[in-house]
Amino acid sequence: MTHDQHFRVWRGDDEKGELVDYPVEVNEGEVVLDIIHRLQATQAQDMAVRWNCKAGKCGSCSMEINGRPRLACMTRMSTFTEDEVITVTPLRTFPVIRDLVTDVSFNYTKAREIPSFVPPPGVAPGEYRMEQVDVERSQEFRKCIECFLCQNVCHVVRDHEENKEAFAGPRFLMRIAELDMHPLDAGDRQKEAQDEHGLGMCNITKCCTEVCPEHIKITDNALIPLKERVVDRKYDPLVWLGSKIFKRGDARSGA
């Protein structure tokens, strides 16, 4: 089963660009990335596209297909009708390098700003012991393939470039949540999440969860629990009163 499909692909660089029309052959069982590769092979040899595994596990081929952030290798052509015009653009939150390739270094900068695992005092490496029940919650977050679709769709930075400095984005707030839920991590994550990484900017509209190709419940299982832990520390008058009356230190929740 073969048919011709109308593709519109954004071609350009950081100075100018436009949507270019391509009629292209589509075969049964193909995905959008296959079609982009066919365009490269037949009509647009200089079209830039980033890809690698073609299996939805490397997170390289993130782009926007009919306006929706998707992995091109996981978007089946059978989900479109044959007469549908399919518009493919680069991610719209990050600077474009060329055609469908964007500069995602914003995410690497944010990743470096998150302090890594802090070993617990008095426990030597090799002596770490954790029960499965204590770590399985954060194992969901380890499924992340760093496609940055959540970072791209989050309106906090997508619509407001000026927020990029103050906001780590869902992927890295999820990383903070993962460390904060870690039974052995000794880092102080909660105040930092709010004060340094912009957790308060998240208004939990769940687009990160909607676009996640790994179906990680980013909002419900990472961001909201982290917000609640911040409330424990920063906005709970009972905790504040208790710490004043009993002269407690800044005891972390979760002990």
Binding site: G17, G67, T89, D103, R158
Partner: peptide, 19 residues
């Protein structure tokens, strides 16, 4: 910022391309 060109992003004027 999605539709602003000065950020170095792809210059696309449409507010969304969702169909």
């Amino acid at each position: 910022s999605t539709t602003d060109a000065f950020t170095g992003r792809a210059q696309i004027s449409a507010r969304t391309l969702r169909t």
